[in-house]
Design a protein around this nucleic acid. Sequence first.
DNA 1: CTAACTGCAAACCTTTTGCATTGAC
DNA 2: GTCAATGCAAAAGGTTTGCAGTTAG
Lengths: 161, 161
Amino acid sequence: MPPSHRVEDADGRRPAAPRLIERIRAAGIRVTGPRRAIARVLEEAGDHLDVEEITRRAQKIDPSIHRATVYRTLGLFKGLGLVDELDLLHLRGERHFYEIRESATHAHVICTHCGKILEIGGETIAAFEQAISEETGFRVESMRFEIGGYCPDCPAPPRRS
Amino acid sequence: MPPSHRVEDADGRRPAAPRLIERIRAAGIRVTGPRRAIARVLEEAGDHLDVEEITRRAQKIDPSIHRATVYRTLGLFKGLGLVDELDLLHLRGERHFYEIRESATHAHVICTHCGKILEIGGETIAAFEQAISEETGFRVESMRFEIGGYCPDCPAPPRRS
DNA sequence: CTAACTGCAAACCTTTTGCATTGAC
DNA sequence: GTCAATGCAAAAGGTTTGCAGTTAG
């Protein structure tokens, strides 16, 4: 599997990232150098980043930013509902990945052979959420979909029944 | 949150567990004491167990069974497609939970307030899998659904919009 | 008999925490 | 000025691994 997750958007759309820092300020939370840097890293990322990579990129902006701060900041952003945490089927160990929370929920479809990740959104997901709400009576707050399989470019082994 | 996950089956159905050990033997893999014990623990479990709990229960059968063996055995079972690994939205830290793979995929719907877990299967899931296959061209091998929200018995905070 | 499996202990890796210092508002 | 945020280092928590002894087939 490749070292980085190239993400392809199933329908070619890439929604503009909301300005994280403005939303933090609006929430009455202090705007600091590290938070600014980490927000910028997330906004400029074209793929899912793990903490190590976020730290590396944030340190290009300010080398004194510490790993612990990255963890705390991501926890903060997550608590505010600004980012989502993924683990991508643990295909790359225990590390977690982060992405800015898009307006709509989407599923991650992961090729277990080549590591390619597709994101699926739209009507399929909306209909599913609706069905879950109706069946369970839950008020759904977050959905995590991680789907593994073989992409059209990869040789799939014969089905073990 | 309660210390153990009582699982409620949305439609009252609890499918009979396949006999893990027979499937292991059929796969030409050695049947040993620890594997027998761990398989039995999984088959008798009414809820999702983490490694610590599986180890504890397996040790009731044979006290010499070691944690490392439990990890290795679960990895083996997982590789054979006999069990699934969950993380239940990380609501209980980084530990992973295991369950026997049922014939059909199901979603875990988790109340983030009281920890209750509902399992949803059936037509809703089948239709979703079908839609994903068609949209992506992937051959879907496994799906992990972890949905968080408030169950009907728990007070939901007002929506932050 | 031999390769696969196990128990044990140590190593590993990611994430969290306590504390003194710094900095945003 | 005050309380929140940060850097650092150490601890925690879960999982993996090397190795020598054991065992299933």
